[in-house]
Nucleic acid binder design. Structure first.
Lengths: 186, 186
DNA sequence: TTACATAGTTTTGTAAGCTAAACATAAGTT
DNA sequence: AACTTATGTTTAGCTTACAAAACTATGTAA
């Protein structure tokens, strides 16, 4: 697969990120995380989890004695928090700034969270905070944006994406928000 | 792998999306696309391309007679345009709204393009257009945003992501923008 | 027409990340 | 202690997507 070079010591595959996030969330929700819990949360088999955890153990991110609960080591907890915060920022942006519905925001954030640079996260936070400023002019502008909807039926090329609107705005993913069961996707 | 259910007939793997985009771009750039061109653009071996094209042929997205140039069929061209426009919207948003530097915007857009719903794309377009409105109040607000940078050194939890700032804003991906060679990543 | 370089294909092998099923352990119940 | 159930591990096999290398076709040039 084509790879993306980030500093290796802090790079995690999407899969690893899901495991770390699941473990962290489970610890918050119920105080502990076990293989079965992780499997259920990620909607995959126990076997896959068991194998994946080995990798995380080898990288000193977690401790996992045979048949026992999973524990995040300091490195792993830092990583998990990074993953969590990245996800939270994206979801917040989609929901509160773009006004995407909760379920779809969750799904989209799940899909995008792994592939976003720290710089972009920073700027998203800026944008979120800006939208929430206690400032009359900003508030007014935000309100206008929230009332703003593009109504574009032209077959001209879109000035942004350089393709025509039917193409730029396909009605394809309408069936994407029919879950929201807490399952992590992809 | 955990999967994401979108209407199947219009769903492409990230890999397939890359191939479609590469073919489309090559046709625009030089009038035709051959296996070697695609391989070079995507920075992978010819063998991999040759195999992948078979899949696209089977799905009636392209025509590819043995040892000849690749041709997009109507279905494939539509798909390619969708991929292109999705990418363009994301890149535009990152660059022009968030102010991410060109190379990094390219890389980030490459990474995120495959995992974003049509709804989110629509709302991003709205935001982009809103930022470019010919309206004094909006212009003023946009200018303020462009001058706005969060300066947060607190160790308190971030109100957005609920984690402390060192965690929310790791300095990890600084080495991510050292290419921009036209190579598609991941 | 033969030879060679370029382009494309096929084959073999690898890695990640899953499933499914068989197997092992732990813990609670009677 | 023996049984049962829930939980965890292991094994075998699958799919996607790639690399590397061997092989095949095409076209140009002598």
């Amino acid at each position: 697969m084509l790879t993306f070079q980030i500093k290796k010591e802090f790079s995690f595959t999407p899969s690893e990120q899901h495991y770390l996030r699941a473990i962290y969330e489970l610890q918050e929700e119920q105080g502990y995380a076990r293989v079965t819990d992780v499997a259920r949360k990620l909607n995959i088999g126990k076997g896959a989890v068991s194998l994946a955890l080995k990798g995380l153990v080898e990288r000193d991110l977690i401790r996992h004695p045979h048949y026992q609960v999973i524990e995040l080591l300091p490195q792993g907890e830092m990583a998990a928090k990074q993953v969590m915060s990245r996800f939270a920022v994206l979801k917040h942006f989609l929901e509160r700034v773009l006004g995407i519905k909760k379920n779809m925001a969750y799904v989209d954030a799940c899909l995008m969270e792994h592939f976003i640079s720290g710089e972009t996260v920073d700027r998203l936070i800026d944008l979120i905070r800006f939208f929430e400023l206690e400032d009359d002019l900003v508030r007014e502008a935000v309100q206008r944006f929230q009332a703003y909807r593009r109504t574009c039926e032209s077959t001209e090329n879109c000035p942004i994406c350089e393709f025509s609107c039917e193409v730029a705005l396909p009605e394809l993913e309408n069936s994407a928000a029919d879950q929201g069961t807490g399952h992590t996707v992809r």
